[in-house]
């Protein structure tokens, strides 16, 4: 039995045109027994950064608290919010601190990164359980359905997807992948972040990111 498959769960993040999305399933299990269909694996870090933490459920909580503490310390010292790429480095070093007794989590980071011109550009990254960073330009996956996510994403994803299309692409990828994974599923959640420069788009007004529950938890 692999500890990485003890509780199950999967996360994926994708880049679009001026937008980025991160999605996960909602299952929590103990091996093949499903316990919860509303287990949060994706957490907001700042207004512009999300982190997904698939892996051992107890470490999800521990690492989430650890990241919250370190991001708060960073915010106080620097008197500004942490950028996605900086946060990815923080995740990496936090995990590598435990190189020989790791947290059993493979984090996925998605956010909108500030550019020198002041606009925002999509950013995604993922690491393994000891913090080896992977900055991808297209999509990153992690968790028990990772090979399935890779297969579907490689088939569906294309460059410069508009926000609506990115939402559909990441949703289809996640749903079809977790449907073939015994350890993932039981509902899913998608977070979409978009950059609307001077836009009147309704999504751009009230908040900077939107979260959509694309499949409600299903009773067994």
């Amino acid at each position: 039995m692999s500890i990485m498959e003890y509780n199950g769960g999967s996360v994926i993040a994708m880049v679009g045109k001026d937008c980025v999305a991160i999605a996960s399933d909602l299952r929590l299990g103990v091996q093949s027994l499903s316990i919860s269909s509303n287990f949060q694996k994706i957490f907001p870090v700042t207004d512009r950064v999300f982190v997904g933490l698939p892996g051992l459920a107890s470490d999800v909580t521990t690492l989430h608290e650890q990241f919250r503490y370190r991001v708060n310390m960073y915010t106080i010292k620097e008197e500004r919010e942490i950028e996605p790429e900086t946060f990815a480095q923080l995740v990496s070093s936090t995990l590598y601190e435990r190189r020989f007794g790791p947290y059993f989590i493979e984090p996925v980071i998605a956010g909108m990164q500030k550019t020198p011109s002041g606009s925002l550009k999509p950013f995604i990254a993922a690491t393994d359980l000891i913090g080896c960073l992977n900055f991808a330009k297209d999509f990153v996956v992690a968790g028990t359905a990772s090979s399935k996510l890779f297969g579907v994403a490689e088939g569906l994803w294309e460059p410069d997807l508009e926000a609506e299309d990115l939402f559909e692409t990441i949703s289809q990828t996640l749903l079809n992948a977790v449907d073939r994974d015994a350890f993932s599923g039981w509902g899913a959640v998608v977070h979409l972040m978009c950059f609307f420069e001077g836009s009147t788009h309704p999504l751009a007004q009230p908040r900077r990111s939107s979260t959509n529950r694309i499949a409600s938890p299903v009773a067994p």
């Binding site: 090979s147 297969g151 088939g155 949703s171 749903l175 079809n176 449907d179």
Partner: peptide, 19 residues
């Protein structure tokens, strides 16, 4: 070898699963 990559893609494109 790549069954786990291909099969969910076919579910989606052939059986129109989740569509």
């Amino acid at each position: 070898a790549a069954q786990s990559l291909v099969q969910p893609f076919l579910d989606n494109q052939i059986y129109f699963k989740n569509q």
